[in-house]
Design a protein around this nucleic acid. Structure first.
Lengths: 181, 181
DNA sequence: CTGGGCATGTAATTCGTTACATGATTGG
DNA sequence: CCAATCATGTAACGAATTACATGCCCAG
């Protein structure tokens, strides 16, 4: 049931449409939660049926109409309760590390390429995160309470990203010592 | 299909039974791949049917018999091929960070407790990882090729863990500035 | 000889992914 | 007008979780 709460969390600050939520799950929120647009649309229907979200259609000139969802009071309460429940999920699955277990002279170059690619993706992401930090969270201790939590999630993303870059460098250095087949 | 390859990877060095695999997925491998025993038993049957694993029963005095699985030649080849395919999964889902988005004066203490708990779990895990590194991977550049890959996965776990501890400290410090309700 | 734990498994349900569909809009 | 794109959605399938089941051995 965690996707439901992820969606409601994304709606705390602003009402959003399915595609806007989808984009959030690819960028900011995407660091610690992923969901496809298909999942999101399904879940939005379920949540609206449950009475945790309300739904309204917004006319747009020169664009398809958006269907915008917002938290109801019941939704806010369900979300607040959920925070006190048991926290279970902390899954991390990474095929790349699995593949490294299979390292040999034949595939070393291939794996090095994959790591290089990921390094670049992470740099890109870090650049965005750092920009957000500078512009909105320069002085964490002075933030309003809820924003402190958002800042901490951002900080987790940034420090994980920096650690990852360093690991990539170590990995590429070590892989370069593997003699090609 | 990645669970199949995770299991085969775990069987590269030694033949294992379902419960032994299960334990591996909780500890070493568990850092970047998780699987329940139910999933593992199901997948073992599938893989044996496919001819990628062989299966033999080992009599044990004073214990239930173990059913031990090992890679076949076909399994080794399928695994080697898989390394060259597209690497998609890098999912990370963490309810705790999601909950931090919902930070307020009421739940700050609860969240601080959860972070403290996770910090201790991670310390425990790091202690094990560091011990393995010291005893088996003291000089990475001198390792045989495949072990270099295993080392890199371990190194990813360790540096991620260290980063996480630092983040926990930052988080606890900032949470302590939230006035209780 | 019984209660608890371990190794192995099955079944039902929920969650997530892949593939496909539809209408409307904008760029060329 | 045609191709590409966006927003919304459905269907089928595969993966993962939850709940339950069975036999066997050990400790008390």
């Amino acid at each position: 049931m965690a996707l439901a709460h992820a969606i409601m969390t994304a709606l705390l600050d602003a009402d959003l449409s399915g595609s806007e939520l989808s984009r959030d799950f690819e960028t900011s929120l995407g660091f610690f939660w992923q969901a496809s647009h298909q999942q999101i649309y399904q879940e939005l229907h379920k949540l609206a049926d449950k009475g945790w979200l309300n739904r309204r259609e917004v006319q747009q000139s020169g664009k398809p109409n958006r269907i915008v969802y917002g938290l109801t009071q019941a939704g806010r309460e369900a979300l607040a309760d959920w925070v006190f429940g048991k926290t279970r999920m902390q899954s991390a699955k990474d095929e790349l590390l699995l593949k490294l277990y299979n390292l040999n002279a034949q595939n070393a170059q291939h794996l090095a390429n994959e790591i290089t690619q990921r390094r670049e993706d992470m740099m890109q992401r870090l650049y965005l995160y750092e920009k957000v930090r500078r512009t909105h969270y320069a002085e964490p201790a002075a933030l309003p309470t809820r924003h402190k939590g958002v800042y901490l999630a951002l900080a987790a993303g940034i420090s994980h990203g920096e650690q990852f870059l360093a690991w990539c460098d170590e990995a590429l250095a070590l892989l370069s010592t593997v003699e090609p087949a």
